[in-house]
Amino acid sequence: MTRRRGAQELAQAAVLKGVLALPGSVRRRLTSAHGAHGQWLANDVRLMLRLMQLAGEPGPETLPVDEGRVAMARQTAAAGGRRRVASVRDLRLGEGDDALLARLYVPRSRLLEQTAPTLLFLHGGGFVFGDLETHDGACRFLAEEAGVRVLAVDYRLAPEHPFPAAHDDAWAAYRWLLEHPELVGADLDRLAVGGDSAGANLAAHVARRAAAEGLPLAFQLLVYPITDATRTGGSREAYAEGYYLTGGFIELAERSYTPDPVSRTDPRMSPLLADDVPDGLAPAHVATAGWDPLRDEGEDYGYALQRAGVRVEVRRHPSQIHGFLNTVGVAPTSRLAVREVAAALKEALG
């Protein structure tokens, strides 16, 4: 069962939702306009960042890892909402110590169907943070908006489990789904893999390996993915401070999950650096945020796949920051952006 939210999380959610529900004219008086490089940061996103600053909400990367994980869970619970779905069920993929925790979301539109289009979802968090709880709101929203079953999977985190542990777990989850579709009602002809940030990196790995091995996959949904762990400059430099995902967070993630710098050039970690694109790679939707350090590499990966003949839609959301997938419960513009992401998934899986 999903974890019940504490009083602090509920209070933060109420404040965020209340302030961001104020008329636009009132919100604009509470913050100043912010634009650069030909794009404007959404008013509700600016206000949300300002409220977090006033509340003294620490960045997870500024805390010891265990405390940072708690902080991220609190922040995402406050912002993610709790969209109603038909059912939510926790399960284990596999047996024994190697079993992975997972959670199945069934939308109301698919409750009576024995099999349905299914998204294997891998959460973000820099390979260090994140779990089934941090992305509960996002998975609920995607399930209902796209009309697909969502199987969210936990995987081992760094620094306890460095590269390639998370990639191995993502592949194991995909193989489990292929072998046991009846346990979650998955239609293997309408199967997608997706995730955000680090989770999108894992999803890209699963898609590439599935194509290389000739296994079924209809679509990949990549939301602000990490695609080049060696990247510097560009958006990584321009948006390194002040927009939730910081340069310090990225440095911690790289140091924790890839302590050996050589592993950052591995195609699993940096698919943009891969020598080739496997034949039969699933079509993709790549969503990026205008004010995100990972923006450039995500878009570069999408365009590289296009040049290789893969059907890819690259969609930048210019008013958003990294993490907009997790703020669907409070930020109207973020909700609109994620609704577009869900629409792409819905169209791809029919």
Rank of each mutant, 00 (worst) to 15 (best):
L101G: 13
L101W: 05
L101E: 09
A102P: 02
P107V: 02
P107Q: 06
R108E: 12
R110K: 13
E113T: 15
Q114D: 15
Q114K: 14
Q114I: 07
Q114A: 15
T115Q: 14
T115P: 07
A116M: 08
T118L: 02
L120I: 12
L120Y: 12
L120R: 07
L122P: 09
L122F: 11
G124S: 10
G124R: 04
G124H: 12
G126A: 07
F127T: 10
V128F: 04
V128W: 01
F129E: 07
F129T: 01
F129Q: 00
G130K: 05
L132S: 08
L132A: 07
L132K: 02
L132C: 04
L132E: 06
E133A: 14
E133M: 11
E133N: 09
T134V: 07
H135G: 05
D136P: 05
D136W: 00
D136I: 02
A138Y: 10
A138M: 13
A138W: 03
A138H: 01
C139N: 02
C139Q: 01
C139A: 03
F141W: 08
F141A: 00
L142K: 01
L142A: 05
L142R: 00
E144W: 03
E145H: 11
E145Y: 09
E145I: 03
E145D: 13
A146C: 08
A146Q: 04
A146R: 00
R149Y: 09
R149N: 11
R149P: 11
V150L: 00
V150G: 00
V150T: 00
V153L: 06
V153H: 04
D154W: 02
D154Y: 05
R156D: 07
L157A: 04
A158L: 07
A158R: 05
A158E: 08
P159D: 02
P159R: 06
P159C: 01
E160W: 02
P162C: 07
P162S: 08
P162V: 08
F163P: 06
F163I: 12
P164L: 08
P164K: 14
P164S: 13
A165E: 06
A166C: 12
A166S: 08
A166V: 10
H167F: 13
H167Q: 12
H167D: 04
D168I: 05
D168F: 04
D168C: 08
D169Q: 14
D169G: 13
A170M: 09
A170P: 06
W171H: 13
A172E: 10
A173C: 13
Y174E: 14
R175L: 11
W176F: 05
W176M: 02
W176N: 01
L178D: 14
H180L: 09
H180F: 09
E182Y: 03
E182G: 14
L183F: 11
V184G: 00
V184S: 05
V184A: 03
G185K: 12
G185E: 12
G185V: 11
A186S: 12
A186L: 10
A186C: 09
A186P: 10
L188Q: 06
L188I: 12
D189R: 15
